[in-house]
């Protein structure tokens, strides 16, 4: 009895009590769907019909010969390869530009961050018109400096780069804020010491700034890769996967299978299987990135 009482009054138990609400929420809205999704991926099932048959690994096998999925996977990789480096290097450049004492610096920082808190739909509508090949401001402006005209979302080969540009515009502010925080954490003495040693701007950046923002870079690489592989909102709202499936990405394809085509015919289990494979890929990639990152990144004590 005494042991029970002690266990109940210990800090440990109280701790659990305090986190119980969030644990409960995570269990209901996180863990349960993840597990039922896993179960679904082994079934022949649609979302509207209660009839569900166990299908073993059939859904996972079907992944190998699905040309639309292959296209979506290639598109996703293409998107990630463009999005991650450009957004991170762009953000670093802007963060360095914003990391000084000049007039209106607060305004500039705010301006860079505003797209992050703007709704995707608003951004989407704006870009649809900006990048319209006939009526858009972008072609007009680019035409002014002798470029274009571009088809943007209307030309199959240009749709993905346009999507990358649009999402980078929306995400840049977030990366920039992280880099700004990292830059402001660099002790002044180090740059001064480098200057005394005769290091130029590039050399200071290369040997002082870059290594010291390493942890931020690692965080952003992992974070951006994860979000890039799970891209959905912008595709769903702006391009709808088109033209001709050139911007169809994996999560969007899963959505279409489960919620548009597979309501009455059993495609939901297959969609769940694809989602699970994506989950494993993302997990593995994140682990590899952290493992490599931790060997290369310098954490100052």
């Amino acid at each position: 009895m005494e042991r029970v009482r002690r266990a109940l009054t210990s800090d440990h138990a109280i701790g659990w009590v305090f986190v119980a609400p969030s644990v409960l929420l995570v269990a209901i809205f996180g863990l349960y769907p993840i597990l039922s999704g896993l179960w679904l991926s082994f079934q022949k099932a649609s979302l509207l019909s209660p009839v569900r048959e166990f299908a073993g690994l059939e859904n996972y096998r079907a992944i190998m010969d699905d040309p639309r999925l292959k296209q979506a996977a290639i598109n996703t990789i293409y998107y990630t390869v463009l999005f991650v480096p450009i957004s991170i290097l762009g953000a670093l450049a802007i963060a360095i530009a914003l990391n000084r004492r000049i007039r209106f610096i607060r305004f500039y920082r705010l301006a860079v961050f505003i797209p992050v808190v703007t709704s995707t739909i608003a951004t989407g509508i704006m870009f649809l018109w900006l990048l319209d090949s006939t009526y858009g401001l972008a072609n007009w402006a680019l035409g002014g400096i002798g470029l274009g005209p571009f088809g943007f979302f209307e030309r199959p080969s240009q749709a993905m780069p346009s999507l990358v540009a649009m999402t980078i515009w929306g995400w840049l502010g977030f990366d920039t804020i992280i880099y700004l925080a990292a830059l402001q954490g660099i002790p002044q003495e180090l740059s001064e010491a480098a200057a005394i040693d005769g290091a130029g701007r590039w050399s200071t950046f290369r040997n002082v700034t870059w290594p010291l923002v390493g942890p931020a870079t690692l965080l952003l690489v992992v974070w951006s890769t994860l979000s890039a592989l799970q891209l959905f909102d912008e595709v769903f709202f702006v391009t709808k996967g088109g033209p001709l499936g050139r911007t169809s990405v994996v999560v969007f394809y899963v959505y279409r299978l489960a919620f548009e085509q597979g309501l009455a015919i059993p495609l939901a289990g297959y969609a769940a299987a694809i989602a699970y494979v994506l989950f494993l890929v993302v997990l593995a990639l994140a682990l590899v990135q952290f493992w490599m990152g931790n060997r290369m990144v310098h954490y100052s004590s």
């Binding site: 009482r5 138990a13 609400p21």
Partner: peptide, 16 residues
């Protein structure tokens, strides 16, 4: 601090 454990059922009731 003896009575703090009473919070537990109370919190659970609230969440429920």
């Amino acid at each position: 601090m003896k009575k703090t454990w009473l919070i537990a059922p109370l919190l659970f009731a609230l969440v429920a």
